[in-house]
Design a protein around this nucleic acid. Structure first.
Lengths: 199, 199
DNA sequence: ACAAATATGGACTAAATGGTCCGTAATTCG
DNA sequence: CGAATTACGGACCATTTAGTCCATATTTGT
């Protein structure tokens, strides 16, 4: 079992034990790495980029995260968890129509023009990396599920395809954003969701 | 002016002139390169990948195409031209509903699981490369235009946002495909286009 | 204080990268 | 044939890449 894995799983219960303590926070380092991957994509991100952003020496990096790939998968999973939680919150706390709020949130993700990291990564890596594809599939399915719950809490399965169309539409607008479409055109596009769900 | 550029612009009128003739076809080489970029993305494609696929020596490569970036842009533009032409053909020659046919074609591009090269590239490069962003924007706008023409030949401008929603939806399904969604789920998703455009 | 254990900095490595250069081959024109 | 011109093969180059290693620093338990 690697250092990183042990550290991660026993984080709370583990007695400090002997040895020099870390002087960085693993969670913060992970989030710093996430940001870089998010901005630049996997291939275009170098070890130097990462260690600089995480303020880690190479040895600490490898001791804690094993490899660029392993770090990336952890970052991606972290992002997925967070994003889905966020989306649920948006749906629950929305002022007006929760579907509108979700569409807005999806097409206008926290990352700004960086788009949705998961979609970026699926596009870049899923065809050659089944692990990433798996994370992506799960994420997309979860988004659909949230949409379906909101569309028809009584019988979400019945509206599953419609929910999928909504998330597809939102995901599509991410590409428009990246190409530099002005915000108002994207807003117009999203209004079409109301034609799908007249309410 | 570079060799490649002169060759491209004078291709037809230029007298053979003295000098050793090329023993490769520039257009075929370009298409071979396109395929590699399409499969692997820009960063992940190496010069070795390219020269091997194009059956070119490095010197011929640079003489004809100047740089990896320049080749890439030419390949991308080529792809855009072709794809749009193809989409128009699909719309015109469709048996049933031309919108359905276009949605099918977009979500199920020639490249198979590679997805739509333009969307791939916009996702990977547009945020850092205005040239690519420009090509992407034009391409997406043209797709909208074709949809709008089909939706309402009398007054295409009036249905522009709806046309954009349709292409967004189709583009969104590309992400689902890459994540490995089974084909029938994607088909279900596209059927929702009929809810947007009941006909 | 000392042994055991863990972390850190940063030099180092082998491989791969995009790009250049040069000697040679093939062609046309005089 | 020979000069001019263009193309080709492939050795070469500086830089960057992900990853390793080791001497040193910092901690705990005895």
């Amino acid at each position: 079992m690697s250092n990183a894995a042990r550290q991660a799983s026993d984080q709370k219960t583990r007695t400090p034990g002997p040895g020099r303590p870390r002087n960085f926070d693993e969670a913060s380092a992970l989030e710093a790495a996430l940001l870089v991957f998010w901005q630049k994509g996997y291939e275009a991100t170098s070890l130097d980029d990462l260690t600089k952003a995480m303020s880690l020496s190479r040895s600490s990096f490898y001791a804690a995260f094993d490899s660029k790939q392993a770090l990336f998968r952890r970052a991606l999973s972290h992002y997925s968890r967070n994003g889905l939680q966020n989306l649920k919150n948006v749906a629950v706390t929305a002022d007006g129509n929760p579907v509108d709020a979700m569409m807005q949130a999806l097409s206008n993700p926290q990352g700004g023009v960086k788009g949705c990291m998961l979609i970026n990564c699926v596009t870049e890596l899923a065809p050659h990396d089944e692990g990433v594809a798996e994370i992506g599939r799960r994420h997309l399915e979860k988004i659909e599920e949230i949409f379906a719950e909101v569309l028809d809490p009584e019988n979400p399965d019945a509206v599953r395809a419609r929910a999928r169309a909504l998330s597809s539409l939102a995901i599509g607008t991410l590409a428009l954003r990246k190409a530099g479409y002005p915000a108002d055109r994207i807003a117009d596009t999203l209004k079409q969701a109301k034609v799908i769900l007249p309410d």
